[in-house]
Simulated scan of single mutants.
Amino acid sequence: MNDIWHFFTGVSDGFSNALSTLNPLPVLIVAILIGLLQPKADRLGLKALLAVVVVLAFQIFLPVVMNHGYARWPDLSHIGAVVDLFLLYVFAYGMIGVLGGLKGMTKLGAAKAAH
Rank of each mutant, 00 (worst) to 15 (best):
L19N: 03
I34D: 00
L22D: 08
H6P: 03
F15D: 00
A31P: 02
L33W: 04
S12W: 09
T21M: 05
S12H: 07
M1Q: 05
H6E: 10
V27R: 04
P26M: 07
H6F: 09
L19Q: 04
A18C: 11
T9I: 15
S20P: 00
W5H: 11
W5G: 10
I4T: 13
A31F: 07
G14D: 14
L19E: 02
F15R: 02
F8E: 13
L19K: 02
V27A: 09
I34G: 00
D13F: 07
I29S: 04
N2A: 08
D13L: 08
I34S: 00
F8G: 03
V30Y: 09
F7Y: 04
D3T: 15
V11I: 03
P24V: 15
L22M: 13
V30R: 04
L19D: 01
D13G: 06
L22E: 08
V30L: 14
L22A: 07
G10D: 08
I34K: 01
F7A: 01
L33K: 01
I34W: 01
D3Q: 14
H6D: 08
T21K: 13
N23H: 12
G10H: 04
L33P: 01
F7K: 02
I29N: 02
A31Y: 09
N17C: 07
L22N: 09
I34A: 00
V30P: 01
L25E: 09
I32Q: 02
G14V: 11
N17G: 14
P26A: 06
D3Y: 13
W5Q: 14
S12F: 09
I32V: 15
W5T: 15
L22Q: 04
I34M: 00
G14S: 15
I34Q: 00
A31E: 11
V27G: 07
H6G: 05
T9L: 12
S16P: 01
F15T: 11
L33Y: 02
